[in-house]
């Protein structure tokens, strides 16, 4: 028992555990909108695109959250511009822009990166990289997300279910889409250290899919996905410490195990 509690005596682990659990819940929560709007590729792509911003801002020496955030917005705008010029579809535009941004990040880190840039930690997650500032950031973004979803719950639901009718009904669809993208981008930014950019998409998708397998009610799905994400982060962090593995992959595998359980439960109960 004491061995299980050993890591809790370390400040870095406490920080990592809070971020993993809260970020898991945050990704699960926002992931419901991502999954129901069939935007999984955006979540995946945006996290990769942000890696380019991380590398560039690290090299220039500006705040990583500001640099990577601005880079993410630029990537999203570029995707929108390319998509508007047919015949390139949005999935292809996402593929081109985000992988190019990811590749640029790798080149920057390999070519000009200094020893203080731990690319592997950003790619796959590293509990040692989590500071008190990261804890504050993830708590702040989670609070912002909860307030936004609470204040615009019905509008966001309408836009997610049927954007065209929502627009006809007078909702500011473009504004609500932008709000969702900002929340998604912020969730990716604050989760980057613990999960790694290559695995964030899983944290966005798996909890929402698990919840959808277990419920047919949207508010229940939101709460359940948040809970699944939090459990995924908490269990994954503990297991990764004891097995001495990178936190990101273990958290994702914990989620995958929950998915298998929910899928099996769904098959059994019809």
């Amino acid at each position: 028992m004491s061995q299980l509690l050993d890591p809790y005596s370390f400040q870095f682990f406490q920080n990592g555990l809070v971020v993993a659990t809260v970020a898991g819940a945050l990704c699960g929560f926002i992931g419901c909108y991502v999954v129901l709007r069939s935007m999984s590729s955006i979540g995946h792509g945006l996290s990769h695109a942000i890696f380019g911003g991380f590398a560039a801002s690290s090299l220039i020496g500006i705040n990583v959250y500001i640099g990577a955030g601005a880079w993410g917005i630029m990537a999203a705008v570029t995707i929108a511009i390319i998509t508007r010029r047919r015949p390139v579809g949005s999935d292809a535009a996402i593929g081109v822009v985000t992988t190019a941004s990811f590749a640029l990040g790798l080149v920057l880190v390999q070519g000009w990166g200094s020893s203080n840039i731990n690319a592997e930690a950003v790619l796959f997650g590293n509990v040692l990289g989590v500071s008190r500032a990261d804890v504050a950031m993830v708590l702040g973004v989670t609070a912002l997300t909860l307030v936004s979803v609470f204040a615009f719950y019905r509008q966001l639901l309408f836009v997610t279910f049927d954007p065209e009718v929502a627009q006809v009904s007078g909702l500011p669809v473009a504004w609500l889409d932008a709000l969702l993208m900002v929340l998604l981008g912020a969730a990716i930014l604050v989760t980057m250290n613990i999960l790694g950019v290559t695995l964030i998409a899983a944290a966005l998708v798996i909890p929402a899919v698990v919840a959808r397998l277990l419920t047919a009610s949207f508010p229940t799905m939101l709460m359940m996905a948040g809970a699944v994400g939090a459990i995924m982060g908490f269990v994954g962090m503990n297991v990764s410490y004891h097995l001495d593995l990178a936190s990101g992959p273990v958290i994702v595998l914990a989620g995958a195990a929950m998915f298998v359980g929910a899928y099996g439960w769904g098959r059994l109960t019809g």
Binding site: L36, L157, F161, D162, A216, S217, F218, P219, T220, M221
Partner: peptide, 11 residues
Amino acid sequence: FPVTVAQCILM
């Protein structure tokens, strides 16, 4: 989509 009839109408 995970909504009931009431939830859909209330949107």
